[in-house]
Simulated scan of single mutants.
Amino acid sequence: MAKKPENKNYKIVAENRRARYDYAIEDDLECGIMLEGSEVKSLRTGKAQIAESYAAVDDGELWLVNSYIPPYEQAKTFQHDERRRRKLLVKARELSKLWSATQREGMTLVPMVLYFNHKGRAKIKIGIAKGKKQADKRATEAKRDWQRQKARLLRDHS
């Protein structure tokens, strides 16, 4: 397993575990995300979902579409829309790279992890991915099963 960061401010809010199964991730990119106040408070409770969401380049801007951030109960007057499009913050060079990957190469932008970094800012990791065929998924699953079985054999016979 991967080492967890030792900083106390780092906190994973939502993770798309199925992304690595459904897509072959070529590259990933850390993006900032524009949120309203009640959205940040709601994220701190840790109940957001990004499993059904995707990122898209539209009119020269990067957007996170169909992510779910539940309403914050204590915010009475200024509530946010749960499934609104949220703008992602990237540099112009990175945006042009993402646009060319999605338009020319047929790639997809898949959100992988939504988290608070060590400074306490909300970030999202976007994967530049290509969809896997059913045979590729089976091969990945077989490889993972073999790794588990190999580890079990080594553990039992050592």
Rank of each mutant, 00 (worst) to 15 (best):
residue 1 M to T: 09
residue 2 A to T: 09
residue 3 K to V: 10
residue 4 K to T: 14
residue 5 P to D: 14
residue 6 E to V: 02
residue 6 E to P: 01
residue 7 N to M: 09
residue 8 K to H: 14
residue 9 N to Q: 15
residue 9 N to R: 15
residue 11 K to E: 05
residue 12 I to Q: 13
residue 13 V to Q: 05
residue 14 A to F: 02
residue 15 E to H: 02
residue 16 N to V: 11
residue 17 R to V: 00
residue 18 R to N: 15
residue 21 Y to C: 02
residue 21 Y to T: 12
residue 24 A to E: 15
residue 26 E to M: 11
residue 26 E to L: 14
residue 27 D to I: 02
residue 32 G to I: 00
residue 32 G to V: 01
residue 33 I to L: 06
residue 33 I to P: 03
residue 34 M to Q: 13
residue 35 L to C: 04
residue 37 G to T: 05
residue 39 E to Y: 06
residue 40 V to S: 05
residue 42 S to H: 08
residue 43 L to W: 07
residue 44 R to Y: 11
residue 45 T to I: 09
residue 45 T to P: 03
residue 46 G to K: 06
residue 46 G to N: 00
residue 46 G to P: 04
residue 47 K to F: 00
residue 47 K to T: 02
residue 51 A to E: 13
residue 53 S to Y: 11
residue 53 S to F: 12
residue 55 A to Q: 01
residue 55 A to C: 10
residue 56 A to D: 13
residue 58 D to A: 01
residue 58 D to S: 04
residue 59 D to C: 03
residue 60 G to I: 10
residue 62 L to Q: 06
residue 63 W to D: 14
residue 64 L to Y: 00
residue 64 L to P: 06
residue 64 L to W: 02
residue 65 V to H: 12
residue 65 V to I: 15
residue 70 P to E: 10
residue 72 Y to M: 12
residue 75 A to H: 07
residue 75 A to I: 07
residue 75 A to W: 00
residue 81 D to Y: 13
residue 81 D to R: 14
residue 81 D to T: 12
residue 82 E to A: 14
residue 91 K to T: 05
residue 92 A to P: 02
residue 92 A to G: 05
residue 92 A to D: 12
residue 94 E to Y: 05
residue 98 L to I: 02
residue 102 T to D: 02
residue 102 T to M: 11
residue 106 G to K: 01
residue 110 V to N: 02
residue 112 M to G: 11
residue 113 V to P: 01
residue 114 L to F: 11
residue 114 L to D: 01
residue 115 Y to P: 05
residue 119 K to Q: 11
residue 119 K to P: 03
residue 120 G to W: 05
residue 124 I to K: 04
residue 125 K to M: 06
residue 126 I to C: 04
residue 127 G to T: 02
residue 134 Q to I: 07
residue 135 A to D: 12
residue 136 D to C: 08
residue 136 D to F: 04
residue 140 T to Y: 09
residue 140 T to E: 15
residue 142 A to Q: 11
residue 144 R to C: 09
residue 145 D to A: 12
residue 147 Q to A: 15
residue 148 R to C: 07
residue 148 R to F: 11
residue 151 A to Q: 15
residue 153 L to M: 12
residue 154 L to P: 00
residue 155 R to H: 13
residue 156 D to F: 12
residue 157 H to R: 15
residue 158 S to Y: 10
residue 158 S to W: 11
